[in-house]
Design a protein around this nucleic acid. Structure first.
Lengths: 337, 337
DNA sequence: ATAGGTTGTCGAAGCGCTTCGACACTTTCT
DNA sequence: AGAAAGTGTCGAAGCGCTTCGACAACCTAT
């Protein structure tokens, strides 16, 4: 293993000079710099992470806490994780992967041990146990998702309220009167993950303004659950012509069942989804959808943290404006027969 | 920030004693141990990761290199990542998330800097650029996947050769004569990711022994690609009654198209998938499938590394035997009309 | 009772790096 | 020409921990 001292000796300078070449925190003459860089290359030197962390009290690591569940939201999670890792590297940081399993203890462990310089938390619940800890530390953090009380916190999320409103507006403009919302699995609501409720609230209040009727049904993914849910919807509201789907794993079952029942999309019923673009374009009908900007959120989270670690930036809540892309799954409401 | 020295002072012992309480590397009297533990709790002490890494030259971190692509295999990747993180924590390790983007440089960086004690690599290609580096370091590593030359390496993977054979055997037993294989996207074959080819080889050679005919077609995911692929298959081999699908994102399109063409599953055609159980059970027809043991591979990888870091264990290639679960998508071949 | 072994604790060195103050030297200004 | 202000480099201290050897204090066995 090559050390700083060895590089210094090889280049004929002192250790501190090599350190300053590496960090750029003091000016170094061109000649010296080149000699040092040459030595670094020749010896294949890599600074030791532990020593660096100890001396500088900076680990250059960002912790990312992902939910343990793999039953929901997987592609979005993955996309965020990849975006975080990629962006972090761009700024010289590495990413530590934590699972939600440890809960608040993970936060304590990471902040206490200096393992990471900052944290990104996903799958934030409205009254998340981890929040007091984050408020009580001076380590920067970003939440992907929105808790009930955001004071002293930085959050990014899609504006799900506006998303719900946007979906219902689109359907209203096409003349649909009766809207059914296929929600997330019941468990999601019970856990009080905010986004599902915020979507619903935004959707409902806009629907009220526009005079539409809304029926909301939580739904597990998969065909069996969907069969039940759909039956109950048409039972209760036979005139339903517009669907808003928030659960990725309910999308394909819904389309298949509608087809099977002889209801054409978009001629008889329209479907708007809230899902990543990839899901929307790969479905059996190209879906009109509001995209979940996973990459954007991941990138933003990292960039905010880096700014804060550099002494710039401050707490803020960023809600990303939803964008609805019209594809082939929505059309004018059928004439009332 | 609380330090070891402060804990020592608070407990009225020396720093080294506290260290030995923590590590258990020397015996400590019950009384002292309790006093120290009490102080640790009272002061809320967390050992500093950097200092520990520097002094012990152990970071207690395992690096996990995931592919950058999010277009294939996502649920499997995620499941492996979660299993790795969870298992690692059980053994006192944390997980560093690296993307494939950096390629061999990431390996150099991590081994050179002592950032991690060991590595797990996913998405291994047959002649992977990272392999020489792994062979040239004494840092333990595990590949999830199988390169062409495994000397000096530890690998885990599903036995894809046996998987292919198993699928075709199952179909043969049911009387199917003409088998179509819906493969991965062409890009996967071009990159020489071994698993796709190994599946095909295993399948073909067993089919030859059993006297079946096999037609292989790579296929991108999605409905459009599937429509083309399926048309070409029935064009070339109208008598096809058995399908083996290896591409997750081709499963649902295949089922939908077959249904649309009036071919009933499993009455007219049978479908065997190679995919995670979750996909198999959530599909529109519950699929007979060979599961991809993502969790098992992740867990094995970590446990092997931990063993090696503890001075136990040695290089080996572990191929997990495939298990075929019969569900509702396969049945006897229709009588020849 | 004494040699030999345990057991529990301590002190000190050192892991490889960053960073502060000091210092020699050069440039610039008056 | 001499003071003031930069430049580039070095030495040394110290980050918080682990670990080695030393050494009391206590057991056994003879």
């Amino acid at each position: 293993m090559v050390t700083l001292a060895e590089v210094a000796q090889h280049a004929g300078v002192s250790a501190s000079t090599v350190s300053y070449v590496l960090s750029g925190k003091r000016s170094i003459s061109g000649a010296t710099r080149q000699r040092v860089e040459q030595s670094i290359r020749e010896l294949g030197y890599h600074p030791n992470a532990g020593a660096r962390a100890l001396a500088s009290s900076r680990s250059n690591i960002i912790a990312l806490m992902v939910p343990l569940r793999t039953d929901m939201y997987v592609p979005v999670m993955m996309e965020i994780a990849i975006a975080v890792a990629t962006t972090a590297r761009l700024h010289g940081y590495d990413v530590l992967l934590l699972t939600g399993e440890e809960g608040p203890d993970a936060v304590r462990r990471v902040t206490g041990s200096g393992l990471a310089d900052a944290m990104i938390l996903m799958d934030v619940e409205l009254a998340d146990e981890r929040l007091p800890l984050l408020r009580g530390t001076d380590q920067p953090s970003v939440l992907i998702g929105l808790p009930a009380d955001t004071t002293g916190l930085t959050c990014v999320d899609l504006d799900f309220g506006a998303t719900g409103a946007l979906c219902v507006e689109h359907l209203a403009k096409l003349g649909h009167q009766d809207i059914a919302v296929i929600g997330e699995a019941p468990g999601v609501y019970e856990r009080h993950t905010g986004f599902a409720e915020r979507t619903l609230d935004g959707l409902r209040s806009r629907a009220r303004e526009l005079g539409l009727r809304v029926l909301h049904r939580p739904c597990e993914g998969g065909y069996d659950a969907m069969t039940m849910t759909l039956a109950r919807i048409f039972d209760e509201r036979p005139g339903t012509t517009g669907f808003v789907v928030q659960n990725e794993s309910a999308v394909e079952p819904l389309l298949a069942l509608l087809r099977q029942q002889g209801r054409a999309v978009p001629e008889d019923v329209s479907v708007v989804a809230v899902c990543p673009d990839q899901v929307a374009t790969q479905a059996s009908v190209r879906l009109t959808s509001v995209a979940i900007p996973a990459q954007e959120m991941g990138r933003y989270a990292v960039e905010h943290l880096v700014a804060k670690l550099d002494g710039r930036g401050s707490d803020e809540v960023v809600l990303i404006a939803p964008e609805l892309t019209v594809r082939a799954s929505t059309g004018p409401a059928p004439a009332v027969s």
